[in-house]
């Protein structure tokens, strides 16, 4: 229940690096000029970052690549792609793919 000193260091360190990373661009932005190409490339940040998080969690849920059709993460992700593409509705995409994932995990 009680926090120990190692946990305290861990949380303080994690909080410091996370906040530092999120904040650092604001104070330096007035002093450095970004290359226009860099600014244009920032438009690709959200989809590239999200894809880099999604794909390993879907294709290698246990740490090894699993392309079997019995991989419930793969089935759920396929459902999310189909629903997301045709309905363009985020809430529907999340709910339907979660249900399909849970069902396939239960069946398989």
């Amino acid at each position: 229940m009680n926090i120990n000193i190692d946990e305290l260091f861990m949380i303080a360190g994690m909080a410091a690096v996370t906040f530092g990373i999120r904040y650092v661009m604001f104070p330096i932005s007035g002093h450095v000029q970004f290359h226009p190409m860099f600014e244009r490339s920032l438009g690709y940040v959200p989809p590239a970052v999200l894809s880099a998080i999604i794909v390993p969690s879907i294709l290698m849920p246990t740490g090894e690549v699993n392309l079997n059709l019995t991989n419930p993460y793969l089935i759920g992700a396929a459902a999310a792609c189909i629903v997301g593409w045709f309905y363009k509705n985020l809430l529907l995409t999340i709910v339907v793919s979660m249900l399909i994932f849970l069902a396939s995990q239960w069946i398989l």
Binding site: P46, P47, G76, A77, A80, F101
Partner: peptide, 20 residues
């Protein structure tokens, strides 16, 4: 063991699609 962690990739897939 329920695999609730699937919620994160599911959400992120829905967020990526509008960019395509």
């Amino acid at each position: 063991g329920w695999g609730l962690d699937f919620a994160m990739p599911a959400t992120f897939i829905g967020m990526v699609i509008p960019y395509l």
